[in-house]
């Protein structure tokens, strides 16, 4: 797993019950890299990835991707404190990429497909709830 994928897996880790996949394992790293590069953040990302790898080597003598989940999250929080905006700068593209993924949608109990062409059934609702409104005098001003 690349450094970026390992970071994404800490930002959105797999859920303890295994129902929700981790963002890194979902294969979103390329999309996130492209999104950040598209807003002029290629160098910013490369610099931060290098900093995280250096911190992992310093603290644990291994690469970030090899760390146990608990150590990886703690280290990412430490580096994020030292480099404000590191994680925040990834959240917007990551949340979009993660939560539009069909596997994630299905894990949420959604359909995991585009809305069109099947659409969705929706209850018409109980229009007898309007009875007290119907009983009111006109609300509009007479002119």
């Amino acid at each position: 797993m690349s450094t970026l994928a390992a970071i994404l897996d800490q930002i959105i880790p797999p859920s303890p019950d295994g129902r929700m996949p981790g963002a890194g394992a979902l294969g979103l790293a390329d999309a996130i890299e492209e999104a950040i590069a598209g807003t002029g953040g290629r160098d910013w990302l490369a610099d931060n990835l290098a900093a995280i790898e250096a911190a992992a080597q310093d603290a644990h003598g291994t690469s970030f991707g090899e760390l146990a989940a608990q150590d990886a999250e703690a280290l990412l929080r430490t580096v994020d404190e030292a480099r404000p905006g590191l994680v925040q700068g990834m959240l917007f593209p990551l949340y979009i990429a993660y939560y539009q993924h069909p596997d994630v949608a299905r894990a949420l109990g959604h359909e995991g497909r585009p809305p069109h062409p099947q659409g969705y059934p929706l209850e018409k609702g109980d229009l007898s709830l309007l009875d007290p409104v119907r009983a009111r005098a006109p609300l509009y001003r007479q002119v």
Binding site: L122, E123, K124, G125, D126, L127, L129, L130, P132, V133
Partner: peptide, 15 residues
């Protein structure tokens, strides 16, 4: 258009 559960819930609030 359908009220759905959102519409019904808010309708009860209005009432």
């Amino acid at each position: 258009v359908p009220l759905g559960t959102v519409g019904e819930r808010l309708a009860r609030g209005f009432n």
